[in-house]
Write a protein that binds this DNA or RNA. Structure first.
Lengths: 349, 349
DNA sequence: TTGTAAGCGTTATCAA
DNA sequence: TTGATAACGCTTACAA
């Protein structure tokens, strides 16, 4: 009916949309699709001549491999699932940034999902990642029991941050929370404080437990008994910190210094003290933990323990990349560091 | 060589890994794969009997469709690209959470990429999303020129937050920054303040420009001339806010109130004032913008303008989902609201 | 070193 | 309403 010459065999040369396929590259370079693939993946050795021809074709056509097709064919989706607890967390947010940056350098994309500090959500999140065929999973803390986590991951390269667990294709590392807490407490002791109150985080988190242990370590090492009245449990939120300090104050125990398991609680504590006309550091010295950005701008600027969360993120990603290459991961989490600002002072007399 | 009976024809019934395919479901239910697909997608009407058989098979096998294969075959990846500027931002973090939650309800997954407030990064981020064949793109603010954004997206459903632009399959909406700033300024005026200084954000952002306009509006409406010396430009960071206030103070202009274009700058400002022994609100009243979580815990708690960023996120996602269904999106961004706390007070005398 | 051809797990087209 | 059958764009045996 129409007088167009019928297509010779097939003509994939051009498509309506701007999508360029590997096949077109092969055609332009005068090689087979498999050769192009091999060059792309370095799967086998290819002659220099063809390699160059293909690379030229790729450039000319602006070809970019389709990760979706790659995922189907080769099982590699070039995406890494990241289980975070709350994506808007000021603390882990930094880690996400580190992960993203590091992964990007290797052409991987992170898929962020939230576990909401909730076992079921976390399980669902991981299942969603699995069904998306991610190439690996990075888990930031979380509540899912170790065993379940290992089972779910089932052989998929996994990096767990903030928890210690063992398994095949599984690498875990964390902060040295205990050392950090010891540093903070020791600082207060060095300043002459003896009655040092401690506000614990949510003890469901290992972090919280370890920080408490560090506090206890330092007190014991200094030969200071710990009055149980001096310890309050809280939940890592500013509101919780505020409440915790109120409770402490109501107990009528005396203390000259306060160590809180994170900066957010410290900010809440600040407010609680202020409400009772207690000044920091004149009446009470205060140390936080994490060194979130805002710690520099609290009133007064907060003495705290710095963990490079960003670096934790890059380390986690690096470890993942290593596993993906088949190398042995070797993340060296940065050690904690005490940052002395203005919320602590020497106890007079 | 081996005495196993050769496979009859093909036996997809079971696979080494736990992966269940649509084909297996079809087999178990005694229907063709296409029928299963139709039921899954509601693409065509299917007899009740088969529908039930298939659903039973799905349940029994625990089948979950493979999004990767779907992506290849149908062009739908069930993923939405989200271009954020800095994933760790305390401000947009909330929006990401809203997006994630809303998208999840519809079975979509967000792919977060960062533009880093940088035109090139943003372009690359969008290209990466495109190559991943996302079904739509949500852009949170950003620096990419409107025209380029429209071109890049090229017909893909796009939702842009915080900028106004037109295009096919393109929906944009934003906060009412101008109104919010007017509210904040008016509050100060109502308290009797006349010399109200203003710290602008980075004027490369529309937000910053609009907030400044709102400030100017309110001042003009109250018949108050604006001394240009009272306006300082800054960059939306706490460090910037601190610097801005220092500059203001150095100018020796008098002012009794201060309106800062966001809460982070307000926190920096607090510290700068404190360094000069100026108290808030006794010496200077202060209003911020955004109502980030920490605004409740600054010293004193900060009067600010609340934007429900979380809701902005859910609205953006809802709009996207609507476009994907072919419906007309109709996001109604929540209006700004003044939150009065303790950083402002009536000007005496 | 290179090419051919068979998947990968869905959806879409076309007959029946 | 259903079922073959052909894509989708790439990887990877297997052959050459």
């Amino acid at each position: 009916m129409n007088n167009k010459t019928p297509p010779a065999k097939k003509a994939p040369s051009s498509r309506p949309d701007g999508v360029v396929t590997l096949e077109q590259v092969a055609e332009l370079a005068g090689v087979s699709p498999s050769t192009v693939s091999r060059i792309l993946n370095g799967t086998a050795s290819v002659s220099e001549a063809k390699k160059e021809a293909v690379q030229a074709a790729i450039r000319e056509l602006g070809f970019r491999p389709n990760p979706v097709a790659r995922g189907l064919a080769g099982g590699k989706t070039m995406s890494i699932g990241v289980v975070t607890q709350i994506i808007s967390s000021p603390f882990y947010g930094e880690a996400l940034l580190g992960i993203e940056r590091e992964l990007e350098r290797a052409g991987y994309v992170p898929l962020f999902v939230s576990g909401n500090w909730h076992e079921d959500d976390e399980r669902k999140a991981i299942e969603a990642l699995l069904s998306r065929r991610v190439d690996g999973i990075i888990v930031l803390a979380g509540r899912l029991p170790d065993e379940q986590l290992v089972n779910l991951a089932g052989g998929l390269p996994t990096v767990v941050v903030g928890r210690q667990l063992q398994g095949p294709k599984l690498y875990s590392f964390g902060f040295d929370n205990r050392l950090g807490a010891r540093l903070a407490t020791q600082h207060l002791i060095d300043q002459g404080h003896r009655r040092i109150a401690f506000v614990a985080g949510d003890l469901l988190h290992d972090d919280a437990v370890e920080r408490q242990a560090g506090y206890l370590d330092a007190m014991a090492a200094a030969g200071l008994g710990v009055d149980p009245e001096l310890i309050v449990q809280s939940d890592f939120t500013a509101a919780g910190g505020m409440l915790a300090v109120s409770r402490l104050l109501e107990r009528q125990v005396s203390f000259t210094a306060l160590f809180l398991s994170n900066d957010e609680m410290a900010m809440g504590a600040c407010l609680a003290l202020h409400r009772r006309n207690l000044r920091v550091p004149d009446d009470v010295s205060m140390v936080g933990f994490d060194d979130v950005i805002m710690a520099r701008y609290t009133m007064p600027p907060l003495t705290t323990v710095r963990q490079s969360v960003y670096e934790i993120g890059t380390e986690a990603a690096t470890a993942m990349l290593a596993m993906l290459r088949g190398d042995k991961p070797d993340a060296r989490p940065p050690g904690p560091e005490l940052i002395v600002r203005e919320s602590t002072r020497r106890l007079l007399r």
